[in-house]
């Protein structure tokens, strides 16, 4: 594997609980979304990548360096943690400037960069306020500021939009896209799938500590094409339609979801979509709507996480 981040069979245990369970994935350049529900192992992976946890098995590298350790390569990495605990006794400006100095910038350079990064995330007016007075959304933004202020090559963002207001979400998403176009590589975790879908088509899906799918959205869709695919039909004669399509060998199940609604599970969506119009014509059926329940990323995730059931 030769990604920006490479994970090979990475396992991390918390006592009896498995945080990561043989996680294998390669994160390519650009923006990659790490998608999974709460408790899937996203934050565990980020903590491993930021050198705060040591894996129990497997190998994990970022920018070609082993993830465990505090080497100089860390200055090429920006990390925006999920937790909201910061150095609350500091002002926002001191917070960013201090971490820049820990990164190795001189005091004047740290001050210039801190001001610039704080301006970037829209907190200039609040920069001299103590962090303990910051709202959750402001904390997210100041965390992002400290993460990008040293111009890192790789930016790890753990649930960066959590708690940010809708306007801020749009702005920060735009900033992330902009960063990716200026040579930065971003790994963005989220359990809110539509947010990731709007950021990138490059996805790693994680569930129960394992990567269940990886690639762009199209590849993931290809992956699920071999699995049962859900289609909702609306027709005034659901029983008649069910009787006809139930004869097709690729149909797994048919469910009556309403008086005029059917949910069909097929192993071959392409065949289904090709055969349905012909059936409508030959049998003079009335079908008001055809809707694939797997059109959005959320459904794709549910499919993969649930093993296609």
């Amino acid at each position: 594997m030769t990604g920006i981040v490479d994970a090979d069979s990475v396992t991390k245990r918390y006592g009896e609980v498995l945080g990561l369970n043989g996680f294998t994935a390669s994160f390519p350049p650009g923006i990659t979304g790490l998608v999974g529900p709460n408790g899937a192992g996203k934050s565990t992976l980020f903590r491993l990548l930021s050198g705060q946890l040591r894996s129990d098995a497997g190998t994990l590298s970022l920018l070609g360096f082993p993830a465990w350790g505090q080497g100089e390569f860390r200055r090429r990495v920006g990390y925006c943690p999920e937790q909201s605990a910061l150095f609350d006794w500091m002002t926002g400006f001191d917070f960013v400037a201090t971490l820049l100095r820990v990164d190795g910038f001189s005091r004047p350079e740290a001050r210039v960069r801190a001001a610039r990064a704080i301006e970037t995330v829209g907190l200039t007016d609040a920069r001299d306020r103590r962090l303990k007075a910051y709202s959750k959304g402001m904390r997210q933004r100041i965390k992002l500021a400290q993460c990008i202020a040293h111009d890192p090559e790789l930016i790890l963002l753990d649930e960066p939009l959590n708690g940010v207001d809708p306007v801020g979400r749009v702005a920060l998403s735009g900033l992330m896209r902009q960063l990716s176009t200026t040579g930065h590589h971003l790994i963005v975790s989220s359990h809110v799938l539509y947010e990731v879908e709007r950021l990138t088509e490059q996805i790693v899906m994680i569930s129960h500590g394992q990567a269940i799918a990886q690639g762009d959205l199209h590849r993931i869709r290809d992956l699920i094409d071999s699995r049962p695919h859900m289609v909702d039909l609306e027709t005034p004669d659901p029983r008649g339609v069910a009787r006809l399509i139930g004869a097709w060998d690729h149909i797994v199940s048919i469910e009556f979801t309403g008086p005029e609604k059917l949910r069909v599970l097929t192993r071959s969506p392409d065949t289904f979509y090709a055969a349905l119009p012909a059936l409508v014509v030959t049998e003079k059926l009335t079908i008001r709507s055809v809707h694939s329940a797997d059109d959005n990323l959320d459904a794709v995730f549910r499919y993969l996480a649930g093993g296609g059931r």
Partner: peptide, 15 residues
Amino acid sequence: GNRSITLYLSRPIRR
């Protein structure tokens, strides 16, 4: 305790 140590440890400093 509040995990703010992560802000230091994710930087190029040794423990």
